[in-house]
Design a protein around this nucleic acid. Sequence first.
DNA 1: GCGTCAGTCTTGAATGATTCAAGAAAACCC
DNA 2: GGGTTTTCTTGAATCATTCAAGACTGACGC
Lengths: 145, 145
Amino acid sequence: MTPAPDFEQLLRGAELRVTRPRVAVLAAVHAQPHADTDALIAAVRADTTQGGDVSHQAVYDVLRALTTAGLIRRIQPSGSVARYETRVGDNHHHVVCRRCGAIGDVDCAVGEVPCLTASADNGFVIDEAEVIYWGTCPDCSTARL
Amino acid sequence: MTPAPDFEQLLRGAELRVTRPRVAVLAAVHAQPHADTDALIAAVRADTTQGGDVSHQAVYDVLRALTTAGLIRRIQPSGSVARYETRVGDNHHHVVCRRCGAIGDVDCAVGEVPCLTASADNGFVIDEAEVIYWGTCPDCSTARL
DNA sequence: GCGTCAGTCTTGAATGATTCAAGAAAACCC
DNA sequence: GGGTTTTCTTGAATCATTCAAGACTGACGC
């Protein structure tokens, strides 16, 4: 795991107020990539560096604020709840296990900005390409039924 | 739009029982690509070729059965409800408007099976690559605020 | 340090897509 | 046509996420 950055600086840099819930959520997302909201709420509440009671509503608010600010990225494969990660701006993608829902990071196979130019864009102005690889994770492959 | 195929044959070919709700749902998905479940329920109920009362539960069941059988494909961009389409097996992708949620089809830019080989697959056995292009549709681009 | 203001958090309830359950009905096979 | 299995109907439940109203607190200027 990359060393924990200065979350407070990150927040200030994004012109966001620095509050305990925000620092805690940011730290939780950084510590547990691909965690869902429930796990993040639990992590924030277990964070001893602060009071320990943060409403789930605040976590939702913070996650949305951070996502909008571009500090975290929201991913939501079909059939899964929303998950968040702090790796942003490096154009990586995800593999999702069809069986257990596990998520892994995958660096782009093609190059810097893969597939970002669609052959026929229907007039859409495309600003991002999101790739999800569907498959089976090692554990589920081994435990093949 | 491609001419309506023989839905009954399709069902039989997939080893699924042929029932009115199934034919109606399959026809509805074919007639309205990228429709959500609500729209499909409405379309099925408006289908005069049958009684007219199909429970939403049946539609959900049928959609799942058809998806499992590979006759239709389920797509669900983040923040959107589930949508379905009959184009399967041709490896095309989608553009989604960030503002209004409109979905368009995009043929693969790279070739037959684009990006399907991830650079580092973490041991995952990948069987499908799903690409979603995020951007702004022509209408929303024009009506830029 | 202190007051002010706007943005945030808390509490509590509501929304809405999707799923679960149990029994009735229909399709397929012979 | 009869029997069996799958599928459909009805009705209720679940659960992530959002909405709303008021209390709180961080940031900034004096």
